[in-house]
Design a protein around this nucleic acid. Structure first.
Lengths: 169, 169
DNA sequence: GGGGCTTCCTAAAGCCATTAGGCAAATTCC
DNA sequence: GGAATTTGCCTAATGGCTTTAGGAAGCCCC
């Protein structure tokens, strides 16, 4: 019997691809096992649970997103930075809908604190530095930006603004 | 054997309550049946499927939200209307997290077109009327508002801005 | 080439969704 | 008031996903 060569790493990566293909909520341990031509139970040596899988995909997506955002922000400031930042989110959400959805998967506090989500907040603050906002306005601005970006991107993703889903529109 | 007196109406209402209690994605035909002390299969005379149930809960939530928004908007204009509108969403999301999540459940185009989602769009446009925006700016504004409200509300709901989940923050 | 660790498998139990078909209660009609 | 009919809920059964436990075969190193 030939071994499939499973690792947590490969499973998570494949899970992310699967999410982009069939949607994050369709990502299942069974489906992933099928993709590797392996029995479902075999994945449990590499993953604690279905939730564990989803969490790991979420962390992967957050990290990828933070990487891209950081790169896009390099050398930019002010409005330029803001636009570049927005474009990164938008492009990522369109190119990787499953991963983007995964990035919003609820994490427990400790996991979130150790995730790339923290970098996102830092990046957002970095952009706002150019706008000379004092606290608590800065915090408000960070949240507002998060709201706008996520809101816009998710509305766009959920039907291309075609009235398919959005309650607010 | 005493009958439980199930109707689609009652099931959907109970489903909405269940959603608020345990989360929309935990709403299941089985759980609902348990709540009525009835066998799971019995619900299938009143519901086409699990998806059907979720869709109906979504429609209920959309209608409730639209009702509240319409009421809040009566007699208000401009910034006043805007704030009232935002408060309705915010309050609803906090008081009925499951329903609010349900309101964002993806609907197929025909269902969406026949839903209260349309009223939401109309209400938003009504608010903007006070701002004297011409098309296409008005459409952009409608979308932006939707983005901001939803983004803010979902971020707040997903952890009370406590860094628990939001990737954008 | 034989331990020993690792990887994958078989087996099994539990929960959810869904369909088909049956019996009993409610309703309707004479 | 009782017979006929409709309707409501049940039993039974299938199939999928998750998860645990324990077994066997592959791989590495001495």
């Amino acid at each position: 019997m030939v071994r499939a060569g499973l690792t947590t790493e490969r499973l998570v990566r494949a899970g992310a691809e699967l999410a982009d293909e069939v949607g994050f909520d369709q990502v299942t341990v069974s489906a992933l096992a099928r993709r590797f031509d392996v029995k479902t139970a075999s994945l449990y040596s590499h993953l604690k649970s279905s939730q564990d899988l989803k969490t790991r995909i979420a962390l992967l997506a957050l990290a990828e997103l933070a990487d891209r955002a950081a790169e896009a922000l390099a050398g930019r400031a002010g409005k330029d930075a803001l636009v570049a930042f927005a474009d990164v989110y938008r492009d990522y959400a369109l190119a990787h809908p499953g991963r983007y959805t995964a990035a919003r998967y609820p994490l427990d506090p400790e996991t979130a604190a150790a995730s790339a989500g923290v970098r996102h907040a830092q990046l957002t603050r970095a952009i706002l530095r150019g706008y000379d906002l004092a606290e608590p306005d800065q915090t408000h601005a960070v949240r507002l930006l998060g709201s706008v970006f996520h809101g816009y991107v998710s509305l766009e993703a959920a039907g291309g603004f075609s009235h398919s889903a959005p309650p607010l529109l």
